[in-house]
């Protein structure tokens, strides 16, 4: 074929006026944010020696308090599992109210989604502070913080999962006169179940990560040991805590990935 007779398409498209202005605005916003965040090349270049000094003082990790730290890690996992379990269970009815076209009208959907958005907008550490004030110091406050944080996460994604199910089975049941609650329970929830499991596992992973730092504000778990380690310049103990957190978080993520693969197959 004679390729010279044919004009090849452009490799890139020239942006239009609005597109060009958008690129400029985004670039400006990033530069402005970097400046606001105190971007400093000098400080960045001077940090490796300080980091090396920290690691030299933190290594090897301390094994003196290993048993106590291990029990604190167990408490951390208990906070995460209990909080996530309560949050996941409570998320289902809330998600039914948030999902469009499943159980209730658009007005209720909107209100519930706004509430879920508010819950997600408040960081888990802030929820922990709130519950420390409400129920006192300790793991119970942490568990409540994890539960409410899980509701914000799972409630929204459970609702999205239900909205994304094939509408065919629900339509077939609607045509037989089934009530909305029956259609939700018989067709929508079973179809969304694999996605619920996946979302719940992500929720549990998120809860485990969050629970490791709740101790910073007195809401139980191993986070308090990390804070004390740094406050007392006991870097070897702080390093032990960091490594324990890393092992547990990575372990939970790996178990979650295997379970997801087994339950719903690849792709999510």
């Amino acid at each position: 074929m004679d390729s010279s007779a044919r004009t090849l398409p452009h490799r890139f498209n020239r942006p239009g006026g609005i597109g060009f202005v958008s690129y400029v605005i985004v670039a400006f916003a990033i530069l402005w944010s970097l400046e606001g965040a105190g971007w400093s090349v000098d400080r960045l270049l001077s940090s490796p020696p300080k980091l090396a000094d920290f690691f030299s003082r933190a290594w090897p990790p301390s094994t003196h308090n290993l048993e106590r730290l291990a029990w604190k890690m167990v408490e951390t996992l208990q906070i995460a599992v209990a909080g996530a379990a309560i949050g996941i269970v409570l998320s289902l009815p809330i998600a039914l109210l948030a999902a469009r076209g499943v159980l209730v009208g658009r007005g209720v959907n909107l209100v519930v989604r706004i509430i879920l958005g508010f819950i997600r907008a408040v960081p888990d550490l802030a929820w922990a502070l709130v519950f420390v004030v409400a129920v006192g110091l300790g793991p119970f406050a942490g568990m409540l913080a994890i539960a409410i944080d899980t509701i914000g996460f799972c409630g929204r994604f459970f609702a999205d999962d239900m909205e994304n199910t094939d509408p065919g089975p629900a339509e077939a049941l609607t045509a037989t006169g089934a009530r909305r609650i029956d259609i939700a329970a018989s067709a929508v929830i079973p179809a969304a179940l694999p996605a619920f499991v996946s979302t719940s596992l992500f929720g549990l992973e998120k809860a485990v990560r969050a629970s490791t730092i709740l101790g910073l504000v007195g809401a139980g778990g191993i986070g308090i040991e990390l804070k004390v380690g740094f406050d007392l310049f006991d870097y070897p103990t702080a390093m032990t805590v960091i490594l324990m957190i890393a092992v547990v978080v990575i372990g939970v993520e790996q178990i979650g990935a295997v379970l997801r693969q087994k339950i719903i197959g690849p792709g999510r």
């Binding site: 089975p169 077939a172 037989t176 006169g177 259609i183 018989s186 067709a187 179809a191």
Partner: peptide, 28 residues
């Protein structure tokens, strides 16, 4: 609608449930 029914081209069964459960849904 309890006296009507719809058979669609996509079958529209609930995939993760048993055949028997799907038929029982006809009573809903």
């Amino acid at each position: 609608r309890a006296r009507t029914g719809l058979v669609g081209q996509k079958h529209n069964l609930v995939p993760r449930l048993s055949v028997l459960s799907n038929v029982i849904h006809g009573f809903l």
